[in-house]
């Protein structure tokens, strides 16, 4: 059984503090310091939020996917390890939903300003909405399924949901879209001016450490819930054994 030591608690608070500090610094960079984009004006500054968050909302699903595979592998062989993997899968799925929601919302605000529309059914937007729906349904399944197989069903759903992640990533490379082509590693007319990169990297770093922070926090919370459940189950068994004596 894991016990939170004071050191661990201090590291967690330090990590939290660093996340806030990096995000604040990134905010100052993005909003006040880096030059305004020539084509889009100040509206273009949402780039420093939308893109890092979108990138992370494609990374957390992979952690969820790997954790789900470990769950499926361990669930009969080593049930206790399987529960750890399950807790990580749950934590990353929740953070995926948070990040992809922010990605969709910032994208819609941005689209309204620069494309003139809130939404369009192009491959990138559609596949991203599908990703959001898949992970929302993953959480709903975990929440409302009453069967004893909930964890297994959720892990299987996670494996299928992960198929959508590379499709979202490749959609702007494979198909014609309303969404711009890749900014990083794209064609000759793409890229970010070096003077604008600090804001991008600080925000990418900030949202990454913040994301890890909430994943770890949520993971620890789920582990505690699991231990409490095991404790309760153990007590119930002990109590049932005491009656006949």
């Amino acid at each position: 059984m894991e016990q939170r030591t004071p050191t661990l608690r201090n590291v967690a608070w330090l990590w939290f503090g660093i996340s806030i500090a990096v995000l604040a610094f990134g905010f100052r960079q993005a909003i006040f310091l880096v030059p305004t984009d020539a084509a889009q004006g100040n509206v273009g500054r949402i780039f420093y939020y939308h893109v890092p968050i979108a990138m992370l909302s494609l990374i957390f699903p992979y952690i969820n996917f790997v954790a789900s595979l470990f769950y499926l592998y361990w669930r009969r062989r080593e049930p206790l390890k399987a529960l750890t993997a399950d807790a990580l899968a749950l934590a990353t799925a929740e953070v995926t939903v948070v990040y992809s929601s922010i990605c969709l919302l910032t994208g819609m605000l941005w689209a309204r300003a620069v494309w003139g529309i809130w939404w369009t059914w192009d491959p990138r937007l559609t596949s991203m909405l599908l990703l959001w729906l898949l992970y929302v349904s993953y959480l709903m399944l975990r929440q409302f399924s009453s069967a004893g197989q909930t964890h297994t069903l959720a892990a299987v759903l996670s494996v299928f949901a992960a198929v959508d992640v590379p499709i979202v990533y490749m959609s702007i490379r494979w198909w014609r879209t309303q969404h711009p082509a890749p900014v990083f590693g794209g064609g000759p007319d793409s890229g970010v001016d070096p003077s604008m990169l600090p804001a991008f990297y600080w925000n990418l770093a900030g949202w990454t450490v913040w994301g890890i922070c909430i994943v770890v926090f949520r993971f620890a919370l789920e582990r505690r819930r699991q231990f409490a459940e095991q404790e309760a189950a153990l007590q119930a068994i002990e109590a049932s054994l005491e009656i006949p004596q």
Binding site: D37, D193, S195
Partner: peptide, 12 residues
């Protein structure tokens, strides 16, 4: 009408 943006970010 829908504008389509370039994937390029640069100051004026």
């Amino acid at each position: 009408l829908q504008a389509k943006c370039a994937s390029k970010y640069a100051p004026a």
